[in-house]
Write a protein that binds this DNA or RNA. Structure first.
Length: 275
DNA sequence: ACTCCTTCCTGGAAGC
DNA sequence: TGCTTCCAGGAAGGAG
């Protein structure tokens, strides 16, 4: 399940190979992956050159000499770039380049999406609707974030998963950030303090940067994306863990709004002004 | 305008 | 052993 560090890792790998390549043809084998009409997607993309690969939150952006392909990997989306032909039933989109190299998009659960967009990409949906990227944005406003979170009575876990509030966190790293910030995932937005927000931003930056350094987290991953195996799983403190690394108490494993959540009831107390 | 619920999809695990 | 059922999970879209 790629979150910000995994998408950033994919971006770095793809950027090395793909910049300067011209798209000669596209094979779309499963139409729902493409959010545009498939014919107009092809018309817009074939013949274009990839000039850069960027990222915002969990979105990967193939910047073309005109327009962009915005790609979201969701749960299982993976890119494979190679000179050789490959085939399996989970490859849904294939990009052929003018130098006869090939980019395969594989997605076991078919949840991933991609679309062609043109214009001021950051000022049109979906990117215009997103909160600040936790890694790209070095100047996230504590007060703006506090205002957004403080007026809600949803849980902080749910709020941090909302990409409109902050961009990049998914289920794994939210648990890690809340643990590091000593905040219960069940704490409601209107009980969150400015100090909590500062901790969340600081810990998010620390954890996500470290995870990027280690090329992301690989758990329950049968195939490594592009042969890249992440190393951050060795640094996870609570997600998928049994015992709190700090107090050694058994961790709570509960569902919060449908998401499996790991936390330490003792070290992440809510209602108390631990922080 | 907000929140909650359902849908998408598959392989692997669990249950019988 | 082999079949069936359950479940995870990000985000969109519908319902209330």
């Amino acid at each position: 399940m790629p979150e910000l560090p995994e998408v950033e890792t994919v971006r770095r790998v793809l950027k090395k190979s793909l910049v300067g390549k011209r798209i000669k043809d596209i094979d779309i084998r499963y139409n729902p992956i493409i959010e545009n009409d498939t014919n107009s997607f092809k018309e817009n993309v074939i013949g274009k050159e990839i000039i850069d690969i960027a990222r915002y939150g969990k979105y990967l952006m193939f910047c073309l000499n005109k327009g962009f392909i915005l790609s979201h990997l969701r749960m299982e989306g993976k890119y494979f770039y190679m000179k050789e032909k490959m085939d399996n039933k989970h490859i849904h989109v294939v990009f052929y380049f003018d130098d006869d190299s090939i980019l395969y998009y594989q997605d076991v659960r078919k949840f991933g999406r991609m679309q062609y967009l043109d214009g001021d990409i950051y000022n049109i949906p979906p990117l215009s609707l997103m909160g600040p990227d936790l890694v790209l944005n070095n100047d996230i406003s504590i007060i703006d974030l506090y205002n957004k979170i403080h007026k809600s009575n949803k849980t902080i876990k749910q709020l941090l998963l909302d990409q409109g509030i902050v961009a990049g966190l998914g289920n794994i790293y939210v648990d890690e950030v809340l643990y590091a910030s000593h905040i219960s995932p069940k704490k409601k937005g209107d009980k969150i303090t400015k100090r909590n927000i500062e901790d969340i931003i600081k810990e998010s930056k620390r954890i996500l940067s470290k995870a990027i350094e280690l090329k992301g987290t690989t758990i329950r991953s049968y195939t490594s994306s592009l042969g890249v195996i992440g190393g951050y799983q060795d640094f996870l403190q609570v997600h998928t863990k049994i015992v709190c690394p700090n107090c050694k108490m058994t961790l709570n494993r509960v569902k919060i709004e449908g998401r499996m959540t790991y936390y330490c009831k003792k070290c992440q107390r809510w209602g108390k002004w631990r922080r």
